[in-house]
Amino acid sequence: MNTARRSTLLALSSTLLLAGGIAAAGPAHAFLFGRPGVERPAPADFGLGPRSSAGQVYKATLQPAQPLRLRQLQSVPVLIVDAQGRPVEGAAIAVDGGMPEHGHGLPTQPRVTRALGGGLYEIEGLRFSMGGWWELKLSIDSPAGADRVTFNLSL
């Protein structure tokens, strides 16, 4: 009976997980179309970080005060540390991004407006106009080197 109950409960929880997954992903995000040659990254590659830059020079973490949302102009602080985890000061950071599956860029032109200290920088003017996979790319330049970090965000 224990075995039976366990397997049934297992089935029950996977059903709930499935339902929860559908709810969390939301139908607006579940589009199956894409552009040839554009492949959505694995779920583990999505999120606010910490995210290593391509050449492992930096680790960046987005620290929005509230969850990223659609349509609103929003500011997002980003923490930049070096490979040893030390905050990077005085970095020049360029912001870019877009929706690879749609072939369009960001609807606004966000930029880093100020350094907040302790390796934190304020990205202002960010907006997401659609649900789905967005890339946010930061080109970081400091005495530690020039490198690029790409966040995959699910809106």
Binding site: A11, A23, G26, P27, A28, G131
Partner: peptide
């Protein structure tokens, strides 16, 4: 039976109110 009922509920189109909706 309970599992099947839940599965049916989950499979029902739009049974869970998606945040975007």
């Amino acid at each position: 039976a309970a599992v099947m009922a839940l599965a049916a509920l989950a499979a029902h189109a739009g049974a869970t109110l998606a945040p975007a909706v």
